[in-house]
């Protein structure tokens, strides 16, 4: 469990970082908090020759209000996020989700950008090199098999980030920077679920910040996490739900789920979903059922697909009941 050798860069600007990333394409990794990457490097499943450390990039960890929008620098730590008055007052669901990550030390180290980009997890993948020598490499490690879903033609590692569902439910956007310029995309377009990559980050592209639209008046949200132990664990299922009042008669409901596939899933209510006049018992049950049906988990890490679906139903119901009561 020791790191292999690498060259370490500490760029001062984002463009410098992108440039380095471009120069060492395919051989470089970007490090922010390091809580995910360093473990993978110790396991030998990620072996960068060049490590581009973003910690010294100016202004990348700030949390600022720009007009009505809140801009969270990718390097803001989860502790910063959960303790920020701006976040706590305007987006408590995000503070809740940051607080749900692992434990204090990891929240002090881990960043919002890193948590969004968290590598999907699997017991056959995140293991030391000697452990992995006992079997042929899986897709994730350059092989041609998925031990989780045998016979499948893709990897089914599980996305387990806690903050992503909150951000999805809040309708966040991410600003991405590359040597060719930058783009800002809705976070649901940032995630992809093809098994090999879980984000749309292009080579030499970096996640610079997260932008949250103004909550307006009357937005409520909550994040509920189900895990084996009360701390440290990744979610078995995590559900974020945000209800936003758009007018006196109409509200918009967004629900996002983590732990059910290779990327977080946005569960959108059907067009006929009457979210206008508060959540009734029937609506809550129906939405829980919709969410349960939309997720398609595979058997994973001692949890069966049916149980995971069950949990999605329970958590969606609990989240909505909480919002209905709020």
């Amino acid at each position: 469990m020791r790191l292999k050798k690498f060259e370490h860069f500490e760029p001062r600007t984002l463009s410098e970082a992108c440039q380095l990333l471009k120069e060492h394409a395919g051989k470089a990794a970007v490090i922010a908090g390091g809580t995910d990457l360093v473990v993978r490097m110790k396991y030998g499943v990620t072996t960068p020759e060049y490590l581009i450390n973003l910690k010294k990039v100016e202004g990348l960890s700030s949390i600022n209000l720009v007009g009505e929008n809140l801009h969270l620098g990718a390097l803001a730590t989860l502790t910063q996020v959960r303790c920020s008055d701006l976040v706590r007052e305007r987006y408590p669901v995000l503070a809740e989700s940051a607080l749900a990550v692992s434990a204090a030390q990891l929240q002090n180290m881990g960043t919002i950008g890193g948590n969004i980009c968290l590598e999907p997890r699997c017991w056959y993948f995140q293991q030391g090199s000697s452990w992995r020598q006992a079997r042929a490499d899986c897709f994730k490690n350059g092989g041609a098999v998925c031990y989780m879903a045998k016979g499948s033609t893709r990897c089914y590692a599980l996305y387990c980030g806690d903050t992503a569902p909150a951000l999805l439910a809040l309708g966040a956007k991410v600003r991405l920077v590359s040597p060719c310029g930058e783009r800002t995309v809705p976070i649901e377009e940032f995630f992809v679920d093809n098994g090999m990559r879980h984000t749309d980050l292009q080579p030499a592209e970096l996640l610079a910040e997260v932008i949250l639209p103004g909550p307006g008046a009357g937005q409520h949200g909550t994040y509920l996490k189900y895990r084996k132990r009360g701390a440290l664990d990744f979610p078995i299922v995590g559900v974020a739900a945000v209800i936003t009042k758009e007018s006196t008669a109409a509200s918009r409901l967004r629900i996002a789920v983590t732990g059910v596939g290779s990327s977080p899933l946005l569960v959108v209510p059907p067009a006929d979903f009457p979210a206008g006049s508060g959540l009734t018992h029937e609506m809550i049950n129906r939405m829980a059922e919709i969410a349960r049906k939309q997720v398609k988990p595979v058997s994973h890490m001692e949890v069966s697909p049916s149980y995971r679906k069950e949990l999605v139903g329970v958590l969606v119901r609990d989240a909505l009941e909480k919002l209905a009561g709020a």
């Binding site: 370490h8 490090i31 390091g34 809580t35 360093v38 502790t79 204090a104 030390q105 002090n108 180290m109």
Partner: peptide, 9 residues
């Protein structure tokens, strides 16, 4: 802040 020295360079 409490952090983990095993994951810190």
């Amino acid at each position: 802040k409490a952090v983990l020295s095993c994951l810190t360079l």
